[in-house]
Design a protein around this nucleic acid. Structure first.
Length: 221
DNA sequence: TCATTAAATTGTT
DNA sequence: AACAATTTAATGA
């Protein structure tokens, strides 16, 4: 089961399990649109989803990519408001949905659950701050690097290892660039020793290096 | 186990 | 966007 369940007591975990439903989404489908009311805290069981929004200017913006083991939507559930972003399945995806009633119960009852939430919110905050600091990232290579680093955040996605299964096409969808550009950028990042490319996957050698990548580092332009 | 084929992914133009 | 090259998965002898 989900790793946050480890922070719960036996009784809490059992009740949480009963409140969870699972749904499947085919690749490319919208899980929900901005403005929808989806009263569930959502976890990625398998697959890959993207949180993002379309600005009024028409520019697409990615807030975060969520890999298996990642959970999102707690803000929407806690504040009982509409979604502030779009959620898209980048590939065939299975989601675990924790209903509002159960979420509220855990929120009121479980110390472990709240610890987990605070940790998660704090980590997200740090991620956004880092994004704002670097501001206006138009360099596609830097965007690829940042999105990759997000996927390897050890707090948000506590998987073991430094390998992720993701195609270059999916990487491009995440960063908002074409597959061709993603291909070139990844090749450069590999040349700089930050990552190693595999077929259908990427091995990260230097997560910190990716996180602070600003396009002016090594081979910079 | 090996050969053939289909599908997916990557590298280029 | 289209094409070629490469790798993997599936199938059947």
């Amino acid at each position: 089961m989900a790793f946050w369940a480890g922070a719960l007591t036996e009784a809490e975990a059992q009740r949480a399990l009963k409140g969870i439903a699972e749904r499947r989404y085919p690749a490319g489908s919208y899980i929900c649109h901005r403005g929808d009311r989806l009263d569930a805290w959502t976890g990625v069981v398998s697959g890959l989803v993207k949180l993002g929004a379309i600005a009024e200017s028409g520019k697409a913006m990615t807030f975060a990519g969520i890999a298996p083991g990642g959970w999102f939507g707690e803000g929407t559930v806690i504040k009982n408001e509409e979604r502030k972003y779009d959620v898209v399945a980048l590939r065939d995806t299975r989601l675990a949905l924790l209903g509002r009633a159960t979420f509220d119960w855990l929120f009121e009852t479980s110390v472990g659950f709240n610890r987990f939430l605070v940790r998660q919110l704090n980590e997200r905050m740090g991620q956004f701050i880092a994004t704002i600091e670097h501001d206006r990232i138009h360099d596609p290579e830097a965007r690829i690097a940042r999105n990759l680093a997000w996927l390897f955040n050890p707090v948000l996605y506590p998987r073991a290892g430094n390998h992720i299964e993701i195609t270059q096409e999916e990487m491009g969808l995440l960063a908002g660039v074409s597959r061709q550009v993603a291909n070139k950028c990844l090749a450069r990042l590999e040349a700089e020793g930050l990552i190693v490319l595999e077929r259908g996957g990427i091995v990260v050698r230097d997560v910190a290096g990716l996180a602070r990548y600003d396009g002016s580092a090594v081979g910079g332009r």
